[in-house]
Design a binder for these strands. Structure first.
Length: 490
RNA sequence: GGUCGGAUGGCCGAGCGGCUAGGCACGGGUCUGCAAAACCCUUUACACCGGUUCGAAUCCGGUUCCGACCUCCA
């Protein structure tokens, strides 16, 4: 199998991928904190890593794909000091924290199913791996790289950086972090427990009103945000696995801390390749509560949002995401989404033509160049936009054949079919178009089309236009072509 | 304020020294009673100022904007 190049954040270079164990890949992707309905920002990572996974599968690899659910320990910032995000939402809705987690984990997975994202091989939850997290924290303490204060445990970044390079992933320099603070006295005021401002929590003591808490060697508490991914990836993928993925926003501190935790506990880094996808922006602005421009995935499907005039399909969203390279920011707007939708329809239409295409003894067109170009594009740091551009070129050529301007033989026809099946559906994961007209409606519309055709033959255009207009007002659009009249629900 | 990344035609978005992706919109055409749809063809570009080079959207320096993370905390 030909090689695949991937950009590794750790080395800041594009590297040729080599799995640790031949033909097998262990892959860990940071999943959502389930305290709210899935929004647009949740969608890109899963789609990108799904395509990467599918691409590797197509190359013959066996993949164990782990994506976690964070249902504990991720705290709300500033105003909600020390309060668990899940717990906060639970109080508002007057239900159990685990009920919140279940509800939003379900809706997250429902959205993933809609977008044809293959479910993870394993989907571990932080709350189900408290013991593993405690064990890992203990190991770090035993190595003298974490300390306990008043029932909480903190990772000792200063001690760690004497033996390892804290900041190797994010490019941050500890000296800068420390020196940059400049006014440490202020930092330490509210942070008496920590030895240094840049230390991070491995375990937090729970206050009595804290609902989500577990027993530990340090008393009742709950795990820090970073340790869950470390503990769960070790459990299911081993101390060293192939690919760790996530959003660029997690690069620091989360992934940096994961590396530090693993090195502190096991003496080596958890993952060989770190892959980070970029963010989605909306109308040139970042998604933010204050800007009131966040869009939930369900709103996108239904169109119930002030930035949308109508709803869009999950396949459109998926295609939209893949039309940009995963390491670039992607600006969302309804206009851009409509452009993707139209383009997608163009590909569907071309694919549909294949079954009725005239096969010649010889070909005036070749498709093998497209196959090669697609393989090369995907192998070059998962360049999906280039691969999609080749599919559009394929569609263009198919249309030329359909118009009788070019010809193809059976070999090329089959290659075109294979490109759609293999690349479009299997790797890019775009679902095949579905005809969802009811048989009854089908018959009724066909009858009206026949009556209208008769009217046209008699040059009774008043009647033929009436039929067309009446149907249109009922959501059925008629389109004449050389071969006859087609219709669709509008 | 710190670290890193980015500024490409009306919009989205590839490219990363020469051969100027792709989609949508616009325009021209085919088809058509008309319309719509579909298909074919096609215009517009590389933030700004210098430099390197035979040649730069691509490399170097500066300027201006933009973003992510950090500067609170977990």
């Amino acid at each position: 199998m030909s090689s695949v190049d991937l950009y590794n954040t750790l080395s800041r270079k594009t590297e040729t991928f080599e799995s640790i164990v031949p033909d097998r890949i262990g892959m860990y992707v940071c999943g959502p904190t389930v305290y709210g309905p899935p929004h647009l920002g949740h969608v890109r990572g899963p789609i990108v890593f799904d395509v990467l996974r599918r691409f590797f599968i197509s190359k013959g690899y066996q993949i164990r794909f782990v994506r976690n659910i964070t249902d504990v320990g991720h705290l709300v910032g500033d105003a909600d000091e020390g309060e668990d995000k899940l717990q906060k939402q639970a109080r508002l809705e007057k239900i159990e924290p685990m009920e919140v987690a279940q509800t939003y984990a379900d809706s997250y997975n429902w959205v993933m199913d809609q977008m044809n994202v293959i479910r993870p091989s394993i989907e571990p939850r932080a709350s189900g791996h408290i013991i593993e997290q405690i064990e890992m924290i203990s190991a770090i303490i035993d190595r003298g790289l974490a300390y306990e204060v008043n029932g909480s445990v903190y990772f000792d970044v200063s001690a760690y950086s004497k033996i390892e390079n804290y900041g190797e992933l994010s490019g941050r320099v500890l000296d800068d972090l420390v020196a940059g603070a400049g006014n440490q006295s202020r930092d330490l005021e509210g942070q008496v427990e920590k030895r240094n401002a840049h230390d991070f929590a491995l375990w937090k003591k729970a206050s009595p009103e804290h609902i989500m808490q577990w027993s530990s060697p340090w008393g009742k508490g709950f795990p820090g945000w970073h340790i869950e991914c470390s503990a769960m990836s070790v459990k299911y993928l081993g101390e060293e696995f192939d690919i760790h993925g996530g959003g660029m926003d997690l690069l620091f501190p989360h992934h940096e801390c994961e590396i530090a935790q693993s090195k502190a506990a096991h003496n080596h880094a958890p993952a060989k390749y770190w892959v980070h996808h970029n963010m989605i922006t909306i109308n040139g602005q970042k998604m933010a509560k204050s800007l009131n421009n966040g869009i939930q995935v369900l709103q996108l499907f239904s169109g119930e949002h002030h930035l949308l005039t109508r709803g869009f399909g999950a396949d459109v969203l998926r295609f939209f995401v893949l039309q940009a390279h995963y390491r670039s920011t992607l600006d969302f707007s309804e206009e851009a989404l409509i452009a993707s939708e139209k383009g997608l329809q163009r590909l569907y239409a071309a694919e549909k033509l294949l079954s009725g295409l005239k096969v010649s003894n010889s070909s005036s067109l070749e498709f093998s160049d497209l196959k090669v170009a697609i393989e090369a594009a995907l192998s070059d740091d998962l360049n999906t936009p280039i691969a999609i551009a080749q599919l559009f070129e394929l569609a263009r050529r198919i249309n030329l054949v359909n118009d009788g301007k070019e010809s193809i033989d059976l070999v090329n026809l089959n290659m075109a079919k294979e490109l759609f099946d293999h690349v479009f559906h299997e790797i890019l994961g775009i679902k095949a178009a579905i005809e969802e007209n009811s048989g009854v409606l089908d018959g009724v519309v066909e009858l009206l089309i026949q009556l209208r055709a008769q009217a046209k033959t008699e040059k009774n255009y008043a009647l033929s236009d009436q039929i067309r207009n009446e149907l249109k007002s009922r959501g059925i659009e008629l389109m004449d072509s050389k071969e006859g009249t087609n219709w669709k629900l509008s």
